[in-house]
Design a protein around this nucleic acid. Structure first.
Lengths: 206, 206, 206, 206
DNA sequence: GATGAATGAGTGTTCATTCAT
DNA sequence: TATGAATGAACACTCATTCAT
């Protein structure tokens, strides 16, 4: 019924599978079962079709980030959720994330492109959150003292890299999510007072 | 004088600045100061021009990795060098790395593409090295016990993300390199010999 | 309220400002505040919209010509009025005249086009009037003896050119109207009764 | 042999016969016997093909104007030549003049268009010449005293209208050229001293 | 080695027009 | 009356690639 949505869905599928450039508006139209001008009736041009997809993906991402309640959770719990989000969103909207992570890199040179805008918005939102989490953790003593800005940038790069890895999926990635969480926990958190104890390497192996 | 090299250099510059698709063979030819067919005399087609660039970048990367002497260095020193390499190579050959990291993502769907081959080779080499480093570190007691495969994958994703971040360079990235090294050090290494360190109960359970 | 008239008015404005080809039916509809098919409800097609405009302009023109009373006025007074009409009509309905004088030239090749029909009608009416005026003037001795047909054609071309000049209006045209009247007066009329005027030998020979 | 010229010639023919908008680049190519991209190899785009034609026409026009030697000829002889030029150029390059006079009117709204530039150049050159001629004639006593600027504008409009009339050629225009010259002569020139005499209307008829 | 000229196969896009509702 | 949706038929234009010279 809703041709607009059908066009959008098909475009998502094709852009994800073949890339933006390799997908033609005619191909999209044919797969939807309409004529090419119908695509241009619903969307101003090919670019705008792409932009709509990107903005949808951004909205989903921002909604997920919104679910992280930095105020009431412990800092590391917030960070852990943040990490999990970056894994689950790829599983949830893989095609849109694939478009975001695969087609956009070629367009970041252009500051006017929707890609650049979406990246900036996503990055700045994430960075603000990471900043708050690290600050709160360091203030409460849960986290060790680190340089917030540089660490936040590093974590962003890491999360970004992890999403990309899932999309490329050149091999099975079992355990990467928990390895990441453990890795960050060990690096960031101070031992909990009163509940920690000395442990040797051999003991851990057991 | 060497037209082939001039074509290659110009192609690198333009592919990096505008992306592969947005760069035309005519544009390359004009900027070099030759005619379009001259490009096709030196290179079979546009794709092969791209492949040569990619392979050059891969070789530079592999040479850098080769410089890491896992046998004689301590595991963390090796890892640290590995991290530094991923920062310095972007500074060294920024255009080629930009092409690699920006144009390739759109092509990884195709298993025959040079991009895919280059990515696989780079990834597998890096993964092997990371595996050896982690193994050696855990064996010597320098590193805590972790799941090698998942951790290596995570580190690859992280290094990849860090290179991308440098290329996109949406903000100044001062201190990210040392933050990364510090972050990994804290997470991976056990307290130095003769001492012990705090471990949380949850970590032991994990 | 009268949608038909609103469409017509908007079409006049846009055709005059941008030309017929450059104006789309969608644009007309949007500026009127209706949908595109509404335009086609009121007018058979874009062409017919254009034709209606042209015929309106023709009617206004013919009405003005009708006001010239050749019988009761002196021949030159008639001619003067005719000249004034060709100046005032452009000021009166500038957009319609602009359409007539700018869009039509490209269509005169086609004998079926409304443009051609309108031009023929306007031209033949004007020519008949000029013929009568010249004839009457020569008969009464007010005008010098000239070749009626060729002179009428020349005067038509002149009037046409003057209207065009006003529409293009590449510079201020102060005084052109009176210069034209004076020019024609001097050329056409004999010295007033009872007097004679100078005539060159070559003129007599001609 | 010279495809570029063949394309240009065909474009001239088709633009003149059908107008710019109604002529497609594919049609031009087919009539020349090449493929469509060949047209774009020789000319940047359809517009530039049009511009080249226009500029050629302008050059021919300016060359003709150049042949008028205001310094050594008498003022009216110069004007007469100017009038004759506006008749003969239409006979000489009718297609190019047709394009100039039929396609351009629709484009004069755009100050950047080649049409506007060509019109301005042609008009200003002609106006300068007319100004000089009238001035010289009035200074020498050959011409009656008139307002130069307004009269020049009127003459431009007349010449323009006469060229248009020839192009449209809705009827045979025998005698219009000499009628125009006679008309201007009578209007502009004073009776020659010493050689003129009184003539009655009836005498002229004889 | 290099070029001028050309092309096949597309590309996104436009636009007047139609028709079921 | 009027519209939302759609379309047929084109359009200018691009680009990697080829080939005779």
């Amino acid at each position: 019924m809703n041709k607009r949505q059908a066009i959008l869905d098909t475009a998502v599928r094709l852009f994800a599978a073949q890339g933006y450039e390799a997908t033609t508006t005619l191909q999209i139209a044919r797969e939807v079962g309409v004529t090419e001008p119908a695509v241009f009736y619903h969307f101003k041009n090919k670019e705008s079709l792409f932009s709509v997809i990107l903005e949808e993906a951004l909205n989903v991402y921002l909604q997920h980030l919104d679910a992280v309640d930095i105020e009431t959770s412990t800092p590391f719990a917030s960070l852990e959720l943040l990490i999990r989000i970056h894994f689950s969103i790829v599983a949830e909207i893989p095609e849109r994330m694939s478009i975001l992570l695969r087609t956009c890199p070629a367009r970041l040179e252009d500051p006017q492109s929707t890609c650049t805008k979406v990246y900036r918005k996503a990055r700045s939102t994430l960075k603000t959150m990471l900043g708050k989490i690290l600050e709160k953790g360091m203030a409460s003593g849960e986290f060790a003292q680190i340089e917030i800005n540089a660490s936040a940038n590093m974590l962003i790069a890491m999360l970004n890299g992890l999403m990309r890895q899932q999309i490329a999926a050149m091999e099975t990635l079992d355990g990467v999510e928990s390895a990441t969480i453990a890795f960050c926990k060990k690096s960031l958190t101070n031992p909990e007072k009163g509940t920690s104890r000395y442990v040797t390497a051999s003991e851990v192996n057991a």
